[in-house]
Design a protein around this nucleic acid. Structure first.
Length: 298
DNA sequence: CTCGACTCCTGCTGGC
DNA sequence: TGCCAGCAGGAGTCGA
């Protein structure tokens, strides 16, 4: 569900609520998410002060003063639910979950809330993940990059090192479609199904094109398109097919600005529509939907 | 090695 | 109106 812009938005929300605070209590409601929690998971969180956050690809890393870091991955359906003791508004950091009225009264118990973290100043952060494709783990802060989930990740798409030349090098020899290659986190880390579709549209590149043929001028168009679509979405607070609420209570609105994702049959922004073109197409690649304009993406 | 198919899990929706 | 197949933003594993 969440791709880089949504993870970045959630991380900023967590940072605002948790950084500088001490964790009073932590609790797991089941033994595992995607994989089992590490030994003494709750005990290793309790009493720790949160030093700060960073994001790597779609992973969030929360630094603790004791020298460990908490890794958080939202998977497809994960979100963070934040509430404050006595506060009327219930911010949901992530796609919308169980409803509450405007004052936060009669809050139903959140289903699939697998982890709860409480701060000493009365914030309660819940990790809600119905499909349990998400994950949490603890590791030494000094060895974050050695973690099995982070080791081997490709470059951050928003980093200066992610250039057309760097991308072309990664794609050289790849005979898989460019769509699938961009979903490979070892090629570039943080893109998912939505933003790959959107970036390829902006760059005018067919998702079916062989990855190895995206070099030269095409790579020079694709890299800025990736950066721009991610920055646009972060600026809008991320996106969701459902409502998306940030820590400040604002709603992520980038889904209103999708050019192709979820728009099968609609006229694309660059085309006159029939009879010149038949609109945005949906195909299935590697088992996942791809949306694109067959006329302008080559 | 590279690539696509399959798998994990639950919820929502769209088409009958 | 109601039901259920199909699909969903991720990513690891397996076998060809």
């Amino acid at each position: 569900m969440p791709e880089l812009p949504e993870v970045e938005t959630v991380m900023r929300g967590l940072d605002a609520v948790l950084t500088g605070k001490r964790i009073r209590r932590a609790e797991t409601r089941r033994a595992d998410l995607r994989f089992a929690f590490p030994p003494r998971f709750s005990a290793r969180l309790e009493g720790q002060r949160v030093l700060g956050f960073r994001r790597r690809a779609k992973y969030m890393l929360m630094r603790l003063e004791g020298g460990e870091s908490l890794l958080i991955h939202l998977g497809m359906s994960g979100r963070m639910v934040a509430r404050q003791e006595g506060a009327p508004v219930v911010p949901r950091i992530g796609p919308q979950g169980a409803a509450s009225d405007a004052r936060g009264h009669n809050q139903p118990p959140e289903a699939h809330e697998h982890v709860v973290i409480e701060t000493e100043d009365g914030w309660r952060i819940g990790f809600v993940d119905p499909r349990r494709f998400g994950a949490m783990d603890l590791m030494p802060t000094a060895a974050e990059e050695e973690h099995r989930l982070l080791k081997g990740l490709g470059p951050e798409p928003l980093a200066a090192e992610f250039t057309a030349a760097a991308l072309s090098e990664k794609l050289a020899g790849k005979r898989t479609p460019i769509k699938a290659a961009l979903l490979d986190q070892q090629v570039v880390a943080g893109l998912g199904n939505i933003y790959v579709c959107e970036a390829l549209f902006r760059a005018g590149i067919s998702p079916r094109r062989l990855a190895q043929s995206v070099a030269g001028a095409r790579a020079e168009r694709l890299v800025p398109a990736i950066k721009q679509v991610l920055e646009d979405s972060i600026g809008a607070g991320g996106s969701s097919l459902r409502d998306y609420v940030r820590a400040d209570g604002e709603v992520g609105r980038f889904q209103d600005r999708f050019d192709v994702y979820g728009r099968e049959g609609e006229r694309c922004a660059r085309c006159p529509g029939p009879p010149g073109c038949s609109g945005i197409a949906r195909i299935v690649q590697a088992g996942r939907s791809t949306f694109y304009c067959p006329r302008t993406q080559r």
